[in-house]
Design a protein around this nucleic acid. Sequence first.
DNA 1: GTAATTAAAGATAAAAGAGTCTTAAATCAA
DNA 2: TTGATTTAAGACTCTTTTATCTTTAATTAC
Lengths: 149, 149
Amino acid sequence: MILSKTCNYAIRALLYVATRKSDNFVPVREISQKLDLSFHFLSKIHLILIQHHLTTSSRGVKGGVSLARPAEDITIYDIIEAVDGNAMFQNCVLGLENCSDDHPCPLHHSWSEYRLNLKKIFQEVTLADLAEKINNEQVRLSNITEILD
Amino acid sequence: MILSKTCNYAIRALLYVATRKSDNFVPVREISQKLDLSFHFLSKIHLILIQHHLTTSSRGVKGGVSLARPAEDITIYDIIEAVDGNAMFQNCVLGLENCSDDHPCPLHHSWSEYRLNLKKIFQEVTLADLAEKINNEQVRLSNITEILD
DNA sequence: GTAATTAAAGATAAAAGAGTCTTAAATCAA
DNA sequence: TTGATTTAAGACTCTTTTATCTTTAATTAC
Ligand code: SF4
Ligand code: SF4
């Protein structure tokens, strides 16, 4: 898989929050139940997201997490970078070193172009874009049938 | 990383064998020394490659491994498929299910195109292509400086 | 202030990936 | 045939990732 499970869950969780589109905080417990993911594991993932300023949180009654900025301003790339880092968008696909545009191997040209393209794909899609599709039921967030009710 | 370490090592090992271009078997020990990789770990990786008919092997004095077909006929994709499988070229990047061309989410179009493209990149480059570049010293197989002597 | 609620933090555990080690089997050379 | 060499096979260990559990701290409602 291109993305780690942690990253997958992070994206799904934020998508869920984005579809709720209330200004209130969304409890992690609610997210974990709707997405059928481990509550504690999700909590940990949210710490990462908070540290990277993708979300804010509040404790106590009525607490939970919420997006730090409008869903329109959070790209999938932002989430991937926060969780998995950006090595994927920079490293040689074969794990080789000492390669450059000056001394390209047969893979270099296509790979460097591809790598850039991958980044662009993720940067071009925001949480808002995906959330809209989810609300239109053209895509779903979890493998269980009942998800958003 | 896109590819597993095991897969990286497998590619490097086969590239080394390809650059040797002798009809003799190449001992795994030699490969591991030249590439500065664990002998036993490489041995294990070679079992996979042999099982997938990418290499053949011979025990005993003069034994070792060799490519099962000409280097021109082994693509990087063949190696990746053998070691890491092909999930990467088929699965949804977000780990979601129940998606199709009929109900695409905003990522779907670019991703499915990208996924196909990735496969193509790997399928278009053979061991022979890369081995030639290595022999021309335009790329190297290991991070240690002395490698092919 | 008290109780209920919820995230924060960190210890622990299970699973997967990466790497090591030992023994067995095959092959070759003398 | 014997000994050296080299892969085959499998047990084992270490590390990282994934997941669980427990305790603490903050917030709200009353
Ligand atoms: S030239 Fe590009 S693809 Fe080839 S080894 Fe270097 S970074 Fe990787
Ligand atoms: S439509 Fe494509 S990108 Fe979107 S969830 Fe489905 S497979 Fe993934």
